[in-house]
C-alpha cells in the first residue's frame, strides 16, 4: 500500500477549475517531484493536502487514514509537515525556539507546569533542547541557535523551515520550492541535505520545484501538472523526455 494515496482530487475557485482530477501515489521512502509551469496548480495541491483548502471532490489517504475535511492541525498530527514557497518562520524568535515550536506536540507539559517551573518542565525542556540541537546539527545551524530567525541569511532560513517541519515528526514532508532564490552552490548543498533527510530520517518527501537540475538530480518519480491537469506521470527520466512536457515548459 502506498503511503500517500490521492485520487480524483478537484477544486474550483469561482469558474476556474484550479485542479482537475488529480491523482498521485507515493510509496514510503520515495522522493517525489511535482512540477509544472507557473499557475499550474501545484501549490493548490499542497494546500489541499494540508487542509488549507477543502477539495470539492476526491480522496486523500495517508497510511490508509482519510484526510479530506480535516483541519491543518489534525493533518499535521496525522503526519504531514510542510514548508512554504514564501518562507514563513517565526521571525521574532530564535532559531532554537523555531524548532522547539515544531516539537510542541511531541513534548507536552501544561501551562501551569510551565509557569510554576515544576520538575516536569525542566526534564521536558532539556529533552526538547537536545532534540532541537540534533535537528539543527543536521542542517548545520547549531552555532546559530541563538540568532533571531529573521536575521539568518536566505538559504539558512529555508533550511530552518525544513528543520522545523521535521521537528513535528512527520511521515510525509512537503517542500514547496525549496530551492527558490538559491544560487547553484546553495542548491547543490540543499540537494545533499534533502537526500540526507530522506535516508537518515527514513522520510518520504514530495517537493514542488522549478529548478530542473534539482528535480532531475534527486527526484525518483515525477508528476507534471499543466492547467490543473496531470500531463505526465512516471519515473523522472522518462517524464522529462516526454514531448508534451517539453512543450508545456518551453512552448512549441
Amino acid at each position: 500500500m502506498a503511503l500517500l494515496e490521492v485520487s480524483n482530487l478537484s477544486i474550483s475557485f469561482g469558474g476556474l477549475r484550479a485542479v482537475d482530477n488529480f491523482s498521485l501515489n507515493i510509496e514510503k521512502n520515495q522522493l517525489y517531484g511535482l512540477i509544472g509551469p507557473n499557475g499550474a496548480g501545484k501549490t493548490t495541491v499542497f494546500n489541499m493536502l494540508t487542509g488549507v483548502y477543502r477539495p470539492d471532490e476526491g480522496i486523500i489517504r495517508l497510511d490508509g487514514q482519510d484526510l479530506v475535511g480535516k483541519k491543518t492541525i489534525e493533518i499535521n498530527q496525522a503526519g504531514i509537515a510542510r514548508t512554504f514557497q514564501n518562507i514563513r518562520l517565526f521571525g521574532q524568535q530564535t532559531v532554537m525556539d523555531n524548532v522547539k515550536i515544531g516539537l510542541h506536540n511531541q513534548y507536552e507539559y501544561s501551562t501551569l507546569t510551565g509557569i510554576l517551573r515544576l520538575p516536569k518542565y525542566h526534564s521536558m525542556e532539556k529533552a526538547m533542547n537536545e532534540k532541537a540541537i540534533d535537528l539543527l546539527k543536521v542542517f548545520e545551524l547549531e552555532d546559530k541557535a541563538d540568532y533571531l530567525a529573521s536575521n539568518l541569511p536566505y538559504g539558512q532560513q529555508r533550511k530552518l523551515e525544513i528543520a522545523r517541519a521535521l521537528a513535528t515528526n512527520p511521515k510525509l514532508l512537503l517542500l514547496d520550492e525549496p530551492a527558490a532564490g538559491m544560487n547553484p552552490n546553495e542548491t547543490q548543498e540543499l540537494m545533499d541535505t534533502i537526500r540526507f533527510v530522506r535516508d537518515n530520517f527514513d522520510m518520504t518527501i514530495l517537493l514542488i520545484e522549478h529548478d530542473m537540475r534539482l528535480v532531475a538530480g534527486i527526484c525518483e518519480d515525477l508528476t507534471v501538472l499543466n492547467f490543473g491537469q496531470v500531463l505526465a506521470q512516471g519515473d523522472t527520466k522518462t517524464v522529462l523526455k516526454n514531448p508534451e512536457v517539453i512543450k508545456a515548459y518551453l512552448g512549441e
Partner: peptide
C-alpha cells in the same frame, strides 16, 4: 508567540 509571528505556519506545525 508563534501565533503572533506567523499564524499559518503555527497551524502547519500543529499548534
Amino acid at each position: 508567540m508563534a501565533i503572533r509571528d506567523n499564524r499559518i505556519a503555527a497551524e502547519s506545525v500543529g499548534i
